[in-house]
Design a protein around this nucleic acid. Structure first.
Lengths: 112, 112
DNA sequence: TCAACTATACAACAATATTTGAAATATTGA
DNA sequence: TCAATATTTCAAATATTGTTGTATAGTTGA
């Protein structure tokens, strides 16, 4: 996890639409959803959704597999752990005595 | 934690400068740093830094206390926990059997 | 009160992101 | 092959955000 990647992930989640998409895919982990299902559940025009899905995929927040004519998207839950570790790196290094617990976080699902 | 608040937090972290500021304040938790220290450590013009500090403060990511003529900023580490909980809410609700662990994450420091 | 210092507020411009509509690609089944 | 469906790509219009310079407000110590 480097700064550029972390920034991309946060950018991905900084839009209300993309945040909705991600949380929807978290709910539907580990199965995922195909693009049309996401579009109808969130009531989004397909081309706009595609724009956001592409950005999220590029950031590594979700991944995609082809199923015939459908594209199935899944949340990359393990990425969250790396992101939190990056955020809390060297936490309290200026005053370690005040830090009562090491940074730790576990993702919900193993999937994706 | 609602969608608007989560979006604001992610927006705050979506800029390289603000990400640097936040991680710097995490390092210097729980003491924090005054604005001038941040500006010189990150080599930023004070007015630009002030712009970003304001955005981060408004998002609740950091908080500020006055010390004479100085403003001391501290990272709000506990907010991260709420954010992760929001992101992983209803995780795998479509297929709970596949979810081997409840979402959990602990912040590094109690401080701030 | 004055001068020096710290920090913020505002306005203008440049840069970037988002939305929309039309067209293109690819897969499926008749 | 043809038509229907699913999804993506592209380009233009709109909206938002980031940066910079200048001005302002508050604090300190003499």
């Amino acid at each position: 996890m480097d700064k550029l990647h972390a920034t991309k992930i946060f950018e991905s989640l900084a839009s209300g639409i993309r945040l909705d998409v991600f949380r929807l895919l978290v709910k539907h982990a580990p199965t995922g959803l195909v693009a049309g299902e996401i579009a109808s559940l969130l009531e989004l025009p397909p081309n706009n959704l595609s724009f956001h899905l592409k950005a999220m995929t590029h950031a590594g927040l979700i991944n995609v597999t082809q199923e015939g004519r459908y594209q199935r998207y899944r949340a990359q839950l393990t990425l969250m752990q790396a992101l939190i570790d990056y955020l809390t790196a060297e936490c309290c290094s200026a005053d370690p005595e005040s830090c009562f617990e090491p940074n730790k976080a576990s993702s919900c699902c193993d999937a994706a």
